[in-house]
């Protein structure tokens, strides 16, 4: 019994960490430009498809990874240049950006189907096989999830340093609070905005490459449940707290597994999203958005 509980906590936390990783892209944009990018999850799908394309060209893991992430960063820059800035300059606000990115999400989904077909593809076993696992006593953890934990740990440290120990972090916060005032104070707002777009797409793009062995290289990575759950994780972190976002995702994953284990697999999503809505009603600013440590 205890073993079942622990196993479900571990698996739930693992799948939940993937939601949190996707949610980080939402947080980065909100932190700097206070906009929600509804095409956030598209970067994950693009990252996975770019990786298998380069890998299929026999470029090896390292080069495939670097080229994919570089292109995703460029895509982030393009997103700013061709979607965000034109809308902003013509007086469009948050709603227009949301609608534009929502359409962009559908655009990418359909472009991928046209270019690659709709069949899910297996991801090359560069991170190990999906059935490889590590046993801790009677608890089993997939090696794929261990990779995700490792990358999340590195990302968390980098994000902490970037946002709290560098001038860039201060620029991010200043630009988010008042764009004009920040510019007057000598902050290069254009650079800050570009960087935030690139970071947001890069993090989700890397997430896509890490998640592909679990989600397969499929359009589900660009519009399925993971996108919604990524948003849910970001909202649990108050849209501003990267650590809270990861924790929010982990809790959502565990909640899902416990709903299956103790209530019903049929009502799993109904139960977990009901709890999520309830939590948001009680604390709209995000249950994992502790202000004392807010970045």
């Amino acid at each position: 019994m205890l073993q079942d509980i622990l196993q479900n906590i571990i698996s739930g936390a693992s799948i939940g960490a993937t939601y949190g990783l996707v949610g980080l892209g939402v947080v980065f944009l909100w932190l700097t430009i206070s906009r929600i990018n509804f095409a956030n999850i598209s970067s994950a799908m693009l990252g996975a498809y770019l990786f298998i394309t380069f890998y299929g060209m026999n470029l090896g893991f390292f080069l495939s990874f670097v080229f994919s992430v570089a292109l995703i960063a460029l895509y982030g820059l393009g997103l700013r240049q061709f979607i965000y800035e034109p809308i902003r300059k013509r007086g469009g606000g948050r709603l227009e950006f949301v609608v534009a990115t929502l359409m962009l999400c559908t655009f990418w989904l359909n472009l991928i189907i046209v270019a690659y077909g709709a069949l899910p593809r297996p991801f090359p076993p560069v991170f190990g096989k999906s059935t490889d696992f590590v046993s801790i006593g009677s608890i089993k953890i997939s090696v794929l999830y261990l990779n995700i934990y490792f990358v999340i740990a590195i990302l968390m440290v980098l994000i902490y340093i970037l946002l709290n120990k560098t001038l860039i972090g201060k620029s991010f916060r200043a630009a988010a609070q008042n764009r004009e005032a920040a510019a007057l104070m000598g902050i290069n707002v254009k650079f800050t905005t570009s960087l935030s777009f690139m970071m947001a797409t890069c993090v989700v793009g890397i997430a896509g490459i890490l998640l592909a062995p679990i989600y397969f290289v499929s359009v589900e990575l660009g519009g399925g449940a993971i996108g919604v759950k990524g948003f849910a994780s970001a909202v649990l972190g108050g849209l501003t707290n990267p650590y809270g976002t990861i924790l929010g995702g982990v809790c959502l994953g565990v909640l899902e597994n416990f709903s299956t284990l103790y209530i019903s697999s049929t009502y799993k999503d109904v139960i977990s999203f009901s709890v999520l809505i309830l939590v948001l009603i009680i604390k709209p600013s995000g249950i994992f958005n502790w202000k004392s440590k807010r970045v």
Binding site: Q7, N8, S11, G12, S14, I15, I214, Y215, E220, G224, A225, I226, G253, E256, N257, F258, S259, T260, L261, S264, S265, T266, K268, D269
Partner: peptide, 13 residues
């Protein structure tokens, strides 16, 4: 046990 379309973890089931 039900696994909904898009689910990637069936540990509970």
């Amino acid at each position: 046990e039900q696994i909904k379309e898009g689910e990637k973890d069936a540990t509970g089931q």
